[in-house]
Every structure is written in C-alpha cells, then in structure tokens.
Amino acid sequence: MAFYQFHKAQIINATPDDLWDFISSPSNLKLITPDHMGFDITSSNAEQKMYEGMIVSYKVSPFPGFNTNWVTEITHVRDKEFFVDEQRIGPYTFWHHQHILEPLDQVVVMKDIITYQPPFGILGAIANRVYIRKALNKIFNYRKKAIEEYFAERGLGYMTLV
C-alpha cells in the first residue's frame, strides 16, 4: 500500500495574525473549496476557533457521483505557526494534512503538506495516478485564487511560490 505526499507553498501578503484568524476557523473552509465538491460543514462547532481534539464533520463529493461524510480531528495546534488535521472517517485510508505558517519579512509563507493513502490498494494507486493527484492540484489552485480574492478585498496581495 503506497503513501503519497502532496506539497503546496504560497506567499501571502498578510500578517501572521490575519492569516491565522482566517485559516483557523473551520467555517472558512467552504469559502476556499470548489463548489463542484458539494462541500458542507455538518458539525455545529464550525464557528469556533480550532483547538487540539476538535472534531469537524463535512459532507463532500471528492469525485463526481460519489458523496461521502468526512470527519477530521485537529490533532496538533501551535497558535499562528501550524495545525494538523487528520481524517477519522472519509474517502481515504489515511489522510494527514499539515498547515504551516512561516513569517518572512512582511509576508507569510503558508505551506500545505498532505500525506495520504487512497483506498482499494492497487486500484487506489491507479486512481491516484489518473485522478486524485490532479484533483488535489485543482482544489489547491482554486484555494489559491479564493485566498487571493479574500485578502485582495482587504487590500492585501498574494502570490504562489510552488
């Protein structure tokens, strides 16, 4: 069973406080998720700031014609530096997502590192090669634009590193 990693890094012209306020609120996930994914938060705690042990549940369509529940736990939080969410129930056999903030002069480098394992063994490996990896790229490209627009509306800029 293969594990895969997906990396993205972005430079955001914002303060660590402003960026942290945005990304540490589960309710903002809907703002940065493509509409075609049918993403809806179903837990009642989405308006709270995240904390270690927080459970957040969603309904999502990771690929056309397949709807599922996705439950994640926030397992690690270091205020204004990083947090980790891990899937407890959902479409992957394993999902571990690190969100890392690194202040750099007047900007913040935001890194996402996702370690995941698709279900179904060799079929999952084929699905990763044919679909999953490309879908993750599309999702994070959408997030890039959504975050760019969010901070541009507040008079801040944004650019992509990788």
Rank of each mutant, 00 (worst) to 15 (best):
K59T: 15
E148G: 05
L156R: 03
T75W: 07
I139P: 02
D79G: 08
Y158W: 10
F3D: 14
D21S: 07
V71F: 00
Y58D: 04
I41M: 00
L161A: 10
I89R: 07
L104F: 09
N128Q: 09
A125I: 15
T93W: 03
Y158Q: 07
T93S: 11
D79P: 08
D40K: 05
E148R: 01
E73S: 12
P34F: 06
N137D: 01
G90T: 11
K80W: 06
S57A: 08
Y4H: 13
V130I: 15
V108L: 05
I23W: 04
G124D: 14
D79M: 11
A2T: 10
R129G: 15
P16R: 09
N141H: 05
A46T: 14
L19G: 02
P103M: 06
P16W: 08
A46L: 12
K59R: 13
N137F: 03
W95L: 03
V56G: 03
M37P: 02
L136S: 09
I139G: 03
T93L: 09
F94L: 13
Y142E: 04
Q10L: 08
L104Y: 07
P119Q: 14
G124T: 13
I126T: 11
H99D: 03
I23C: 10
T68F: 09
F22G: 08
S43T: 15
H99A: 06
G90M: 10
I126Q: 01
G157I: 06
G65W: 01
Y58H: 08
R129H: 13
T160A: 12
T15K: 02
L29Y: 01
Q117R: 06
H36P: 01
Q106M: 02
R133Y: 12
F94P: 03
D79C: 11
R88K: 13
K49F: 06
E102M: 02
K111N: 03
S61Q: 14
F66T: 11
P118V: 09
K111D: 04
I89T: 14
R129V: 14
F94V: 12
K144C: 12
D18F: 05
T68E: 12
A152H: 03
P34T: 09
P91W: 05
L156K: 06
P34E: 10
